[in-house]
Design a protein around this nucleic acid. Structure first.
Lengths: 215, 215
DNA sequence: ATGGTATTGATAATTTTTTGACAAAACCTT
DNA sequence: AAGGTTTTGTCAAAAAATTATCAATACCAT
């Protein structure tokens, strides 16, 4: 049941939420957290929480729950939050710049190793600790340092092309912020994080609310 | 089966993806799209696509598929992409500013009506079409224009407090970008869009890949 | 020490989501 | 105009995810 078993995708998406909450509890000096406490805090059921945590290398204790420091450590380990990941950002527009300047990544194990753009006027400018480089130099830069993750922060019309450049450069994990689905070989993992889609989901919910209140 | 029926959540999350793709096809002059074509483009099965589209007010035609212009119109209507939504952004840090300056929102039906921050030094500055206002003025500003959506772009430590301010101001839909779960009354819809969580998901995938390649 | 009790871990049941299968529809070619 | 063929819409099956249940555990108060 433990370790090299395949953890279901919905569980993996919840693990970061557990980590944030447990970390907070631990920092507040809380030593134990029950599945019920965690469930209430995150809007889940205690059953789901126990089910999820059963995939981890960890035992809870009856009447007390899970030890926060241990749970945090296990979650960090499973999520690879203890090792530093090397990240490049493609696209030095508003969003790419905001990410480069956002300090929280380094603290959580993601080091921005490069910021690339096509626009000659941007090349050489500094954002955060990153200097904008030409997209043409992507391959050589990626060759210098082993890059784990590429973030696509370009307009949707260029997303597929950038994805292919990243794949060609050997990047195995891509975070796609562009409002477009990208096609990659099966050995590359893509996670989408699109603010526009989330807004559209909210817009749908708003429409439904109106419908219900009318009907 | 149609109209006021409840559309499953996984379907709703896919609708924006359909919309982007179909819009692109239509702009390219493609008049018909089969479920198989759409599935291939988005990494789904044709069965899923047909099942999903069966929730819409639309019929495909045997041997041709779905008419792109009609499909686009129906998706836009369901997602409320045709009506303008009023949005406020709380937090004028890197991310909040990037969103305010990002031109694509207005084009897709989301008008940024306010950008708020606690920092006195930022108040009065312009980003995009939005002037930074004091968070203390949120309630009065929201009173002037009906605000549909609030975007939380503050540090996680302030997220819950901001969520409550938005709820008190009468906002019914919240996009939470902070790396923290927020608690709101049940009549308020929250959608999370956290880049950090997506990165952690990728980090997990990278770890798994290493394990497999070793084992 | 002992008993009552809260909480886990595991299993089972339920619900939800995805996929498969195929008759019906309607297009296109001849 | 007729037949072959592709693709839909629907229903059924399978797979996946969530929730409920409960015996076992071990804490804590007396």
């Amino acid at each position: 049941m433990h370790s090299s078993e395949q953890i279901p995708h919905p569980v993996i998406r919840r693990l970061p939420k557990y980590l944030v909450h447990v970390q907070e509890l631990r920092e507040e000096g809380v030593e134990w957290a029950s599945s019920q406490e965690i469930a209430d805090a995150l809007g889940l059921t205690s059953s789901t929480v126990r089910q999820d945590l059963s995939h981890m290398e960890l035992r809870g204790i009856s009447k007390k729950g899970y030890e926060t420091s241990q749970l945090e450590a296990v979650l960090r380990q499973v999520l690879g939050a203890d090792i530093m990941h090397h990240v490049v950002i493609i696209g030095a527009g508003h969003l790419g710049r905001a990410l480069a300047e956002h300090g929280a990544f380094a603290r959580r194990g993601f080091e921005i190793c490069g910021l690339f753009d096509r626009d000659e006027d941007l090349i050489g400018k500094m954002y955060g600790n990153a200097e904008v480089m030409s997209i043409d130099d992507l391959a050589t830069q990626v060759g210098k340092v082993k890059i784990d993750i590429g973030i696509i922060a370009v307009p949707s019309s260029a997303a597929q092309q950038v994805a292919e450049m990243l794949v060609d450069a050997g990047v195995k994990a891509i975070l796609n912020l562009a409002y477009k689905h990208i096609q990659v070989p099966s050995h590359v993992t893509v996670v989408d994080a699109r603010i526009m889609e989330s807004l559209q989901e909210l817009a749908y919910a708003l429409g439904k609310k109106k419908e219900v209140s009318r009907g």
